[in-house]
Each structure stands twice: as structure tokens, then as C-alpha cells.
């Protein structure tokens, strides 16, 4: 879920190059249709069918059974926990992401490239390793284990551990989306606000944030999708305690391994929620990409000076009459 992050500019570039290559290629129809058929068949078998299957299995025993398996206390607790974790992790990473993107896009400082690399770290580390890192730090045998135990603070095998692991794994999403957008926006609008007397804080809320609004929303939905769907890192730190530290993905696995037909269907019911989240995420993502491409096309149109001359000449003509 979530997938590799793609920046807004990358999206635009992809769109543009796609339409150009269409015009450029003059492949024989046979090759073209064969390629299209292969691609379609592949996505049908490996992407669409499994997805449809999740829903089919979930509803195999009817609506009532579906509803029951979601509202059954153990699953319900898992759904609630997942929502809570996302509600903590996403805002944290939005704050961090905005701050980091701001720093990287608008300032020059010594450790800039190091910070940029660090932001990407969670993408290159296996989630299981990420989970283990936290166990090594905060687990009973970990560096802070003794101290935490003495103060009766429980992180590993408890909700705080799950939040930490989720924050780590979803760390890059917002920042990665915002950096190119902020860089593209430059800092002139902010400077203009300053010359008009606006404070830094006001400039941030009224100028900076609105100008990166879509990039931010995009980053948030990706971050959220990953936060709710994360399995590996959470699995390591969770301890799989039913109704306490079991998130939705963990619940799906537990139910599925339960083996019975009933628990199997229940597993698919919970899984269908995650699949639905994925679909919604995709829909919003597609909408945002479409919007971005449209804005980009508009901006391109404006870059051409032809249509503007008329109105400006009219303005000047009137000025001269005065």
C-alpha cells in the first residue's frame, strides 16, 4: 500500500513525456496491441483479481456475517487501535515533514544533504529491521530498558511502541512530497508578504501553506495509507496482544492463521477495509494528479505571451487618452 512516493513534478514530467512519446512512436499495430494485451492481462491477474477476491471472500457469507466479523470485539479493538495510531503518527509526521521540507527548500545550511538523506532512510531500511531497532532501544534488554522499567514506562509490546514504529516507517512521506513543491514555489511570495508587513508566522499560514496545499494533502494521504497498513515494523514491537496491541494488519494475519472457515472470512472482512482504504487513497491521488496536470497546463498556456497582448494594449491606449 502506498507504494513508492512520487513527487508532483515527477508526475507532471511523466504525463508530459507520455503524451510526447505517443506522438513519437510509430510501432506496427501488432507489436502495440501485443504489448497492451500483456500489460492488461498482467494487471488483471496480479492486481485486479486479488483485489476483487478480497471483497468476494469478505462478503462470501453475506452482509450480516461481514458486519458481525467487523464489530466483533477483538476486530473492533484492532480497528480502533489502527485509527488511534494513525491519528497520532500522521499529525506528527505532518509537522516534521513541513518543518524539514521548509528547511531544505528555503534555506542553505551545512548539514542539508545529510538531512535529505536521513529523510529517505526509512524507505531503504526493511520494516522488520526498523521494528528491531526500537526493541533494541526500548525493550527490556535494550539501552533504555532498565530505566524505563524502573519508571514503569512500557514502550515495547505496548501502544507507544506501535506509534514509534509507525512514525518511523511513515517519516518520509510528507517531507518527500513537499520538498519539490516548496522548491518550485521559491521564496519570492514569502518575501513579498514580508515587505507588505506580514510576520513570519502569518506568512507561513497565509502564503506558504496554501501554495503547497495539494502536495501536502497528497503527502498526508500516502502517509496515512502507510500508517494504517504497516505490518512488519509494527509486528515486531507489538507483541500481538489481542484487544491491546493488535492493529488491523496484525488482526488480519491472526484471523487468517486461525484456520477455520469463519475466521478466514473474518480475516477477509478486515482486509477489505484496508483494501478500501487503498482504493480511496488511489482515487484521491488520481484526482490530485489530474488537478496538478491541469494547473501545469494552465501555467504553460500563460507562459506564451500571445493572448495577453490585446488587453494590455487596450489598457495602454486608455491610459494615453487620459
Amino acid at each position: 500500500m502506498g507504494g513508492a512516493p512520487s513527487t508532483d513534478t515527477a508526475i507532471i514530467r511523466r504525463r508530459v513525456s507520455r503524451s510526447q512519446s505517443q506522438r513519437g512512436t510509430e510501432e506496427p499495430p501488432l507489436i502495440k496491441w501485443t504489448l497492451i494485451a500483456i500489460a492488461l492481462a498482467f494487471s488483471l491477474v496480479f492486481l485486479l483479481l486479488p483485489l476483487v477476491n478480497v471483497f468476494a471472500q469478505a462478503f462470501a457469507k453475506g452482509w450480516q456475517a461481514y458486519w458481525n466479523s467487523l464489530t466483533e470485539p477483538d476486530s473492533w479493538a484492532a480497528i480502533r487501535l489502527t485509527l488511534i495510531v494513525a491519528a497520532i503518527a500522521v499529525p506528527l509526521n505532518v509537522m516534521f515533514g513541513v518543518a524539514a521540507a521548509w528547511a531544505i527548500a528555503k534555506f542553505e545550511f551545512r548539514w542539508k544533504s545529510l538531512l535529505t538523506t536521513l529523510i529517505d532512510l526509512p524507505f531503504s531500511v526493511s520494516p522488520v529491521v526498523a521494528g528491531l531497532m526500537f526493541v533494541l532501544m526500548f525493550g527490556l534488554q535494550g539501552y533504555f530498558g532498565k530505566w524505563l522499567e524502573a519508571h514503569e514506562i512500557k514502550i515495547i509490546f505496548a501502544v507507544p511502541g506501535i506509534v514509534l514504529a509507525t512514525v518511523f516507517v511513515t517519516f518520509p512521506f510528507v517531507a518527500r512530497e513537499l520538498i519539490p513543491v516548496m522548491q518550485a514555489a521559491g521564496s519570492e511570495q514569502e518575501q513579498a508578504a514580508l515587505t507588505l508587513g506580514a510576520s513570519g508566522w502569518r506568512t507561513f499560514w497565509h502564503v506558504t501553506l496554501p501554495s503547497v496545499k495539494w502536495g501536502l494533502i497528497y503527502g498526508i494521504i500516502l502517509c496515512n495509507a502507510r500508517a494504517m497498513g504497516e505490518f512488519g515494523a509494527v509486528s515486531v514491537v507489538s507483541g500481538h496482544i489481542i484487544r491491546q496491541t493488535e492493529t488491523m494488519p496484525l488482526r488480519v494475519q491472526a484471523l487468517y492463521e486461525g484456520g477455520s472457515a469463519v475466521s478466514g472470512a473474518a480475516a477477509f472482512a478486515v482486509a477489505s477495509l484496508l483494501a478500501l482504504l487503498a482504493l480511496i487513497t488511489l482515487a484521491i491521488k488520481t484526482f490530485l494528479e489530474w488537478k496538478q496536470a491541469r494547473d501545469y497546463a494552465r501555467a504553460q498556456q500563460l507562459a506564451m505571451p500571445t493572448p495577453e497582448s490585446d488587453s494590455d494594449t487596450a489598457f495602454l491606449a486608455r491610459q494615453n487618452l487620459r
Partner: peptide, 27 residues
């Protein structure tokens, strides 16, 4: 900058993209 009471017009105008002409001028 805020205290100097100057009007500055940037080379690329730097209009606030998310505000219409009225709001830009009223800012």
C-alpha cells in the same frame, strides 16, 4: 523588512497564487 514601510515589486511579480487580485492588493 516589515518595519521599513517600503513597496517592493519583484522581477517575476511574486503574486500570491492562492489569492485573487483583490486579496493580493488587500493583503
Amino acid at each position: 523588512v516589515q518595519e521599513r514601510n517600503i513597496g517592493f515589486v519583484f522581477q517575476n511579480y511574486a503574486l500570491f497564487k492562492n489569492m485573487n487580485a483583490f486579496k493580493n492588493i488587500a493583503f
